[in-house]
Design a protein around this nucleic acid. Structure first.
Length: 155
DNA sequence: GCCAACGTTGGC
DNA sequence: GCCAACGTTGGC
C-alpha cells in the first residue's frame, strides 16, 4: 500500500558497491551487514520502501541516488560461507543470525548530493545521518527529509 | 552484569 | 592515514 511506504538510507563504500554497480545489477541483496540495529531496520523494510543510496568513505561522500526495496528481509547467505569475511559461526540454517533485504535500482542523481550540502540545510538537522558520531549503515529517514534530498538530487 | 580492551566505521 | 565515536567481546 503506497500510503504506508517507508523511507531509509543505506550506506555503501562506492569502491565496494556503488550506485553504478546497482544500476548494472538491477537488484542486489544488501548482505554483509553485521550490526544488530542495522539488521533490525532491514527486517522492518517492506517491498516498495524507498532508499537513499549513500556513498561513504570516499572523497565524494553523499547521496548518490535512489533505490527501492524489492524483497523483504531474508537470511543473509554470506553468514554460512566459512571462507568468506562475513562468516557467522553462531548461525544455523534454522536460526540465522543475519538477514538482508533486496534493493532495486531506481535512479542515479546527475550530481551526488554532498554530505556538506545536507549539513547546510537546517530542515535536515534531525536526520540520523547528521547526528554526531552516527555510524549506522542502515537507518530510517523521515518522508519530508527524503523528499527534500530527492529534490536536491534532481536539481 | 560491569567495564576495559579491542575492532570498526567513516569523516577529514 | 589519523583518530574520535561507537559497538562488541570477554574476563571477572
Amino acid at each position: 500500500m503506497e500510503s504506508n511506504v517507508q523511507f531509509w538510507l543505506m550506506k555503501s563504500e562506492p569502491e565496494v558497491y556503488s550506485i553504478d554497480h546497482l544500476q548494472r545489477d538491477g537488484v542486489t541483496s544488501w548482505n554483509g551487514v553485521r550490526n544488530y540495529q542495522a539488521r533490525n531496520f532491514m527486517k522492518a523494510m517492506k517491498v516498495g520502501d524507498r532508499v537513499l543510496f549513500y556513498h561513504s568513505s570516499t572523497g565524494n561522500t553523499g547521496v548518490a541516488g535512489i533505490a527501492e526495496v524489492s524483497a523483504a528481509a531474508h537470511p543473509d547467505a554470506t553468514q554460512y560461507d566459512k571462507k568468506g569475511e562475513y562468516f557467522e559461526p553462531r548461525a544455523t540454517k534454522d536460526k540465522p543470525v543475519w538477514e538482508c533485504a533486496d534493493v532495486r535500482f531506481v535512479e542515479k542523481f546527475r550530481n551526488i548530493v554532498p554530505l556538506a550540502a545536507l549539513r547546510a540545510r537546517a530542515e535536515l538537522k534531525s536526520m540520523v545521518l547528521l547526528k554526531p558520531g552516527s555510524r549506522l549503515s542502515v537507518q530510517p529517514v523521515e518522508k519530508g527529509h527524503y523528499d527534500l534530498v530527492l529534490a536536491m538530487g534532481r536539481k
